[in-house]
Structure formats: structure tokens, C-alpha cells
Amino acid sequence: MGQATVQQSELQCQSCGGQCAFDPAQQELLCQSCGSLWPLATDDDHKAADEFPFDPDAPAAEPPFLQGDQIHQCETCGGEVVFTGAALSEHCPYCNGSVVRAVEEKAYETMALVPFRIDRDYAARCITDWINRRIAAPSDLTSLAAEGQIASIYAPFWTFDSKEVIEYWATYEEGSGKTRRRRRRTGRINIDFNDMLVPASEHVTPLIRDGILHDFKAQYLRPYRSGYLAGFAAERHHMTVQEGLQANEADKDLLIRNLIEGEIDKPNPRVERYRTDTTGIHYRRILLPVWILHYTYRGTPKKVVVSGIDGRTFGERPFSPWKLAGCSAVLTALTMAIGLLWGATGVL
């Protein structure tokens, strides 16, 4: 994948000719035959954090191209992944469906990636810890999850920077009781969005991003090299910059409205409308590492996702109806007890 076909020579051990895979613990290529380690770091690694300007009024021509990858497509979710080195799997990392060889489609160049920093065993422990902390979860959830499949994938993301000058029209509440009124307010605020992560794949939801990618740091980025992909699956970038910006519009709108409400700092604010002047857009097309556990609970497929950077975990979980009923009963009984005592004492 990347700018060229996976270079098999880079993935072969220079000592014994065996196949190498990226080792998250050492951050180097590890020969699967003789155990030799081969460094991947270069003097130019710092350039991986470089950002690229984008002018929405005059977008630069950026044609996608064939990269000579062997593509596998999921028969269930349609996801296209590239398996590098020994990573070849019969299952889609996103949904656990079957994958088949597919004809390569044109894709955009990936600029950088954050290599996996945690291995499968650590990810499995993070998942177990996360599941054990669920409130009102079914008792058999831990054992069901232990039977699930853990897959690794480099998922495509954007980072966007932008400067926003926002003019807003809003209302807020003033007074109380019969004197309560809504007041109008207009204002202007400046917001700088820096390294805003945006999923570049329909298979990665914003909730997954907000659940596990808290601590994205640009200094973790490394230049795109097949060595970092060896032993892992990866999805390629298929969106133009304009499409990436559009995909983020709903979330950006929510964040801007939330920031305006914080700026108003009055009770019950409501943003009627706003106008924003966006400048200084910079972007990166990157890959971020995630471990995904696929498990099935009563016929419903679910997934738990672990950040390959720091092990932060988030996912889908079922509830136990009996435990929920118990929690509801306790909460209702507590509320009723307070109400009964309050009423019986006659206190206003």
C-alpha cells in the first residue's frame, strides 16, 4: 500500500530471509524466523507531522492512483483492506465478515501513520478490564467476549486545522418565575481547531474516535512505510479533502454551537444561527492503529475497540434486563422514599 507496492524486500530479514512483522513493543521489524530486529526509524521521521494547506476556493488537483496493492473486500460490510506481510486473514477486521480478493480501486496517498504501540495480549487485557467495569452487564458477557475474535487494523483518519471567525445570533433566559424572559444576544468569537481527528472511513464512527483517541499527538506520527504495516491490516484513503471536510460538518457544527453556548454563559442558551469565516485549513491523511474485538450477544454482533496507541477502550455493550430492573427498582424506591418522607413531614 502507500505510494508503491508493498516492498517485499523491506519485509524480509536481512540475516535469514525470513518474513518480518512490526513489533509494537520494540517499534522495529522482528524476524518471525530468527528473531532479529531491524530498525525502521530514519532521520526524516519528524517530517511525518507536516501538514498540508487546503484552499476550498481553489482546491489543488489531487488525482487518486493505483498503488499496486492486493485488495481484499468484505462480503458483509463492503470494507476494503490491505493485508501486509503475514497479516492475511479470512475475516474483515471491521465486522468479522468473510473477505475475498478484489480488484484494486484508485486511492489517495497516505501521508503518515501512528505505529501500533500495544500488542494483542495487552489489548485483550484492556478489553477484559473494560467489560468487567460495565454496570448492569449480563453475567455471561466476559465469557462471551473471551470467545470473540480480536483483529487489528490501521484505520484511515484526517487531521484538520482551521481558524474560525464566528458571528452568532442567540437567545438566553433571564429572571425566574413570572419575570422569566428570553433575551437576544449577538456576538463574535474566534476558534482555532487544531489536529481535529475525523474518520475517513464509514467503518469508524465518531463515537469510536471520541471513545479511544483522546491522546492523539502529532509527534507519534511516522512516515508511511510498509514496514510499519507488516503483520497488520490497513484501509486506504478514498475521500477527497473536500469530502473529508463535509464528513466533519455535523460534528463541527455541534462543537461550534456548544462553544457559543459556553461563551454566552447564561441560563438556557439557544443558538438561533451563526456564520463562520474559515481560513487556514491544513490537513493530513493518516492511519491510526486500533484493535477491534468482535463478539456476538444473543445473535447481535457487537464490537469493542482499543486504541493501538495507549490501550484506551470503548465499545458496544448489552444490558441485563434483570439487573436494569433491579437498578430501576432501587432508584424508584429511593425517590419515592424521599418523596413520602418529605410529604409526611409537611415541609414545603
Partner: peptide, 25 residues
């Protein structure tokens, strides 16, 4: 029970989702 699910979801979101992110909001 839907209200209890909401309470648990909010509790977990406050502890696990990035504060101030779109998913958290």
C-alpha cells in the same frame, strides 16, 4: 428501565468519552 440505561450511558460517557467531543456532547 430506558431511563436507567440513559443514566448508565451518561455515567460511562463522562468517564470514557473525550470531554467536549462531539460524541460526548
Amino acid at each position: 428501565m430506558a431511563q436507567v440505561v440513559k443514566i448508565i450511558n451518561v455515567y460511562e460517557a463522562n468517564h470514557e468519552l473525550k470531554q467536549g467531543s462531539a460524541g460526548w456532547i
